[in-house]
Simulated scan of single mutants.
Amino acid sequence: MRAQIDAFTYDALPARIVMGAGKREEVAAEVGRLGCTRPLIVTTREQAALGDDVARQFDAGSTTRFADAAMHTPWDVTQRALDAAQTARADCVVAIGGGSSIGLSKAIALRTKLPQIVLPTTYAGSEATPIIGETRDGQKHTQRTLQVLPEVVIYDVELTLSLPVALSIASGLNAIAHAIEALYAADANPVTSLMAEEGIAALRESLPRIVHSPKSVETRRLAQYGAWLCGTCLGTVRMGLHHKICHVLGGTFDLQHAQTHAVLIPHVVAYNAHAAPQAMARIARALNARHAWTGLYELAVELDAPRSLEALGMLESGIDRAVELIMQNTYSNPRAPDAHALGHMLRQAWKGVPPEPME
Rank of each mutant, 00 (worst) to 15 (best):
residue 203 L to K: 14
residue 31 V to Y: 06
residue 125 G to A: 08
residue 74 P to M: 10
residue 263 V to M: 04
residue 74 P to Y: 00
residue 148 V to Y: 04
residue 120 P to E: 01
residue 7 A to F: 12
residue 203 L to D: 15
residue 173 L to V: 11
residue 288 N to I: 02
residue 234 L to K: 07
residue 102 I to Q: 13
residue 356 E to P: 03
residue 151 E to C: 03
residue 92 C to I: 02
residue 279 A to T: 03
residue 53 D to R: 15
residue 24 R to F: 10
residue 189 N to P: 04
residue 322 A to S: 07
residue 126 S to W: 02
residue 345 M to E: 08
residue 289 A to I: 04
residue 2 R to V: 09
residue 13 L to E: 12
residue 33 R to F: 09
residue 151 E to P: 00
residue 210 I to V: 09
residue 216 S to A: 12
residue 88 A to S: 09
residue 300 A to H: 13
residue 144 R to C: 06
residue 230 C to W: 11
residue 351 K to F: 01
residue 100 S to H: 02
residue 354 P to K: 07
residue 348 Q to V: 12
residue 265 I to F: 10
residue 159 L to P: 02
residue 209 R to V: 01
residue 187 D to T: 06
residue 348 Q to N: 11
residue 227 A to S: 15
residue 142 T to L: 13
residue 328 Q to H: 12
residue 232 T to H: 12
residue 222 L to E: 09
residue 106 K to C: 02
residue 345 M to H: 05
residue 305 A to I: 02
residue 17 I to A: 12
residue 156 D to S: 07
residue 94 V to M: 05
residue 330 T to D: 00
residue 148 V to Q: 06
residue 344 H to R: 13
residue 320 D to Q: 10
residue 326 I to F: 03
residue 154 I to W: 00
residue 231 G to N: 10
residue 60 A to K: 08
residue 198 E to F: 02
residue 126 S to N: 10
residue 253 F to Y: 14
residue 290 R to T: 13
residue 192 T to M: 05
residue 5 I to P: 07
residue 309 L to N: 04
residue 206 S to M: 13
residue 133 G to H: 08
residue 259 Q to A: 15
residue 214 P to E: 08
residue 100 S to F: 01
residue 285 R to L: 04
residue 220 R to N: 06
residue 319 I to Y: 05
residue 58 F to K: 10
residue 187 D to E: 12
residue 51 G to P: 03
residue 79 Q to M: 06
residue 247 H to T: 02
residue 13 L to H: 04
residue 3 A to Y: 11
residue 189 N to C: 11
residue 149 L to G: 03
residue 153 V to W: 01
residue 358 M to T: 14
residue 150 P to Q: 08
residue 52 D to Y: 10
residue 316 E to A: 14
residue 126 S to I: 01
residue 152 V to Q: 08
residue 143 Q to H: 14
residue 123 Y to R: 02
residue 1 M to W: 06
residue 148 V to W: 01
residue 188 A to E: 12
residue 236 T to N: 14
residue 272 N to A: 03
residue 51 G to I: 03
residue 49 A to D: 05
residue 359 E to Q: 15
residue 9 T to P: 04
residue 253 F to K: 01
residue 101 S to L: 06
residue 336 A to G: 04
residue 311 A to K: 08
residue 190 P to S: 11
residue 200 I to H: 08
residue 249 L to Y: 03
residue 230 C to I: 10
residue 211 V to Y: 03
residue 239 M to Y: 00
residue 227 A to I: 06
residue 151 E to A: 15
residue 35 G to P: 00
residue 257 H to G: 09
residue 248 V to S: 06
residue 239 M to A: 15
residue 75 W to M: 12
residue 305 A to R: 04
residue 347 R to E: 06
